[in-house]
Write a protein that binds this DNA or RNA. Structure first.
Length: 423
DNA sequence: TCTGGGGTCCTAGGACCC
DNA sequence: TCTGGGGTCCTAGGACCC
């Protein structure tokens, strides 16, 4: 049977989440900032119309914000993560096969749905709106790449009311010819420039480009993208997310940090989060990398470096990894610089099931104890809230923590912050 | 004063081996 | 003086995504 994909894409997701719990934001320009209140990562349609680009640094927008009364929010990932889960739970009721592609997007397989596909998608859309308050756009097509484009068409052309399907469409060529090639999934800035230089400006041009040229200039991935535009499916639905091959945890500081002990605190809390991610996916790492850097936007002495340590046994045991990463930090740290960011990366990640106990492990008891300790901490934190228990090395005051000056409440996950309806 | 964080895949080139 | 050929593994870097 022919494949049929639907891409469900939440409109301006973070802004929409804020609006669900704060209706005064409707029809107003709203932006949401990245971690540390750095850049704009989500914009309402009104904000987009004012010409605020994705990624604009917040501090450059002061005037515009004042002039137009733009509402500003810090990223509230606790809220967005929970809203995402609600949207995905709703989608799951409509199809057994689905891939959660990102916090605000999911691919569905509509193979075997025998009623009118567009009508079905309209039902999905209104159900999500009703149950979660989040508006979505839905694109339907025989390949993922076309489904992505279909959802963009659905979003941008109001006459489609949020749903567009390429299936059995008679005007595909003229539609593809109206889409800039850089809108195509997999074609970024560099590739679109290269394509333009060679006379390829639209999705239609890319579809009809020469295969050999494509695979030479854009690698096999570019060729696959063109194939997908032709309706030949090359990217399948990934229903079960594969375990991560690398895990990175880093943050920039709310203020410059010079002091080694403060860097260690920040590092320890990143390691702690990273180890939790390892344990959540039932895996352990063999390689730790620590990296730190100064603020590259400042005209002041710059330094960045990283250091790596290979563990003898794969581990996800927080205290051990904090210890090792601090040793790495001591090696790469140079005094006299104003640091902006520190982070940790875990690689060579092994699944727990594949870890063989070393033949002559003398410390089997210790291992068992470590595992129990981690499990206990994770369980308590799950029940009582993140960071109920944490390691002393992560610090108490954490004055280096990221800035989040415009944080909304955690409406859906904390009893104290639940919205109250006044009668 | 102020510029995010976390991933994936592919390729070229070097090291090393027979 | 001559400067093989093929294979594998690893790494760094480049491209992309949200």
């Amino acid at each position: 049977m022919k494949k049929i994909f639907a891409l469900v894409d939440c409109n301006n997701f973070y802004v929409s989440c804020e609006r669900v719990f704060n209706p005064s934001l409707l029809n107003k320009p709203v932006i949401v900032l990245s971690n540390n209140d750095g850049n704009v990562v989500a914009r309402s349609n009104e904000a987009k119309k004012m010409g605020i680009p994705f990624g604009a640094p917040y501090f450059k927008l002061n005037e515009l914000i004042k002039k137009h009364g733009i509402r500003v929010f810090s990223s509230n990932y606790t809220l967005y993560g929970d809203m995402s889960r609600r949207v995905m739970d709703t989608l799951e009721r409509f199809t057994p096969e689905m891939e959660i592609y990102s916090i605000d997007e999911a691919f569905l397989s509509l193979k075997g749905i025998d009623h009118d596909l567009t009508k079905y998608a309209i039902d999905i859309k209104s159900q999500i709106k009703q149950w979660t308050g989040i508006p979505v756009s839905i694109g339907i097509a025989p390949t993922k790449t076309l489904a992505k484009l279909a959802s963009t068409i659905a979003k941008n052309d109001r006459s489609f009311k949020g749903v567009f399907s390429f299936i059995n469409h008679t005007q595909i060529n003229s539609l593809l010819d109206r889409i800039d090639v850089k809108e195509v999934w997999g074609i970024g800035e560099k590739y679109s420039k290269k394509l333009n230089k060679n006379g390829i400006y639209t999705a239609l041009h890319l579809r009809d480009a020469d295969d050999k040229w494509l695979s030479r200039e854009l690698t096999i991935m570019g060729l696959r993208t063109a194939m997908e535009l032709r309706g030949i499916s090359c990217f399948k639905l990934e229903e079960i997310p594969p375990p991560k091959k690398g895990i990175v945890c880093s943050r920039s500081f709310g203020r410059p940090v010079e002091n080694l002990d403060e860097l260690k605190e920040a590092l320890a809390s990143h390691v702690s989060r990273g180890c939790k991610k390892l344990r959540d996916q039932k895996s352990a790492a063999l390689i730790i990398t620590v990296f730190l850097s100064t603020n590259r936007f400042k005209e002041e002495p710059q330094y960045s470096n990283n250091g790596t340590y290979h563990l003898t046994d794969p581990s996800s045991y927080t205290p051990a990894l904090i210890y090792q990463s601090c040793k790495i930090l001591e090696k790469i740290y140079r005094g006299g610089y104003r640091y902006k960011k520190i982070g940790i990366a875990f690689s060579e990640i092994i699944e727990e099931a594949d870890i063989q106990n070393p033949l002559f492990a003398l410390n089997q008891d210790n291992k068992e104890r470590s595992r129990t300790l981690m499990h206990t901490i994770d369980t308590i934190n799950k029940a009582m809230g993140k960071n109920t228990l944490h390691f002393a090395s992560e610090g108490i005051k954490k004055t280096w923590k990221m800035k989040r000056s415009f944080l909304s409440k955690r409406y859906t996950t904390h009893w104290q912050e639940i919205p109250v309806i006044k009668g």
